[in-house]
Amino acid sequence: MTLVKFNPNNSNKKNGLMPGINDVFDSIFNDTFFSDRMMSRVPATNISESKDHYHLELAAPGLKKEDFKLSLERDVLSVSVEQSLQNDSQERNFNKREFSYNSFVRSFKLPESAEENGIEASYENGVLAINIPKREEAKVQSRQIEIK
């Protein structure tokens, strides 16, 4: 009798119990029709902190600054986009046409040390940059300590 080690995480899928089944599911779920609709479409975000500010950077290429809506409610900063694109060409000889409709909402809980009144945002080169100032008591203070 020969023992064969079974590894479910093996990258070689043809060694499974039913070799053709995995290939069928891979071809279905790796199809662009399903993968485009199953993926969550929210922009990647960088969050950083400097001496005086918190910084948010959202990668959202292909949008205009008018597409964004920023709102602040109870220490929660929400960034939302609702965009509908329609190609209104007069040519009606197309075999496939898809309307494009993109929307997302990203919410960020602001720390207590954030100053809500001085929030500024700009959109340039596909990146929405949001700068949130810190309150005076939260700013990092450094001083030189003398060694005796």
Rank of each mutant, 00 (worst) to 15 (best):
R97F: 13
N93D: 14
D52E: 14
S78D: 04
N102P: 00
V76K: 13
E124M: 10
I130R: 04
K109H: 01
V127C: 10
S103F: 11
I47Y: 07
E91V: 11
F68S: 07
E120K: 15
L85P: 00
L58N: 06
K148F: 01
Q86D: 12
N117H: 07
K96G: 05
S113M: 02
E66G: 03
K69F: 03
F104P: 03
Q90E: 10
K139G: 09
P61T: 04
K69P: 02
R106N: 15
R135M: 15
I145S: 04
D88C: 05
E120C: 06
R92T: 12
N46V: 12
R143Q: 11
V76L: 09
K51I: 13
D52V: 02
I130N: 12
E91I: 09
S48Q: 05
R74C: 00
K148M: 04
K134E: 12
E136T: 13
H55Y: 09
E73V: 09
N131D: 13
V140T: 14
L77H: 06
A60N: 05
E115D: 15
Y54C: 08
H55G: 07
E120W: 01
R97I: 13
E57G: 08
K148I: 06
I47A: 11
N93T: 11
S103P: 01
S71G: 14
F108H: 07
I132A: 05
F104R: 01
A60P: 01
R97H: 12
R92F: 04
L56Q: 07
Y123R: 13
E49V: 12
L58Q: 02
Q86C: 06
E146S: 07
Y101N: 15
N93K: 05
N93C: 05
L77Q: 09
E91N: 14
Y54E: 04
I147Q: 14
H53A: 12
E146V: 05
E116K: 15
F94L: 12
R135H: 06
A59I: 10
Y123K: 09
E115R: 05
S122N: 14
Q90L: 15
Y123V: 08
N117V: 02
I147D: 12
E124V: 10
E124P: 00
P111D: 06
R135C: 06
Y101E: 14
S107F: 00
D52A: 12
Q90F: 08
E136D: 15
E136G: 07
F68A: 07
I130L: 10
V105A: 11
L72T: 01
S80K: 09
I130C: 10
L72I: 08
E136N: 12
S84P: 00
D88G: 11
K139P: 04
R143S: 14
I119L: 11
P61F: 01
L85W: 08
N117Y: 03
N95C: 06
R74E: 15
V127K: 12
N117A: 15
H55W: 03
I130V: 12
R135S: 10
F104V: 02
E49K: 10
L58A: 14
L63K: 01
D52H: 05
S89T: 14
I132G: 02
G126C: 05
L63C: 03
A121L: 08
E120P: 00
Y101L: 11
E136A: 14
A121Q: 13
E137K: 04
E116V: 05
R92A: 13
P61C: 05
E124I: 03
V81Q: 02
S84A: 13
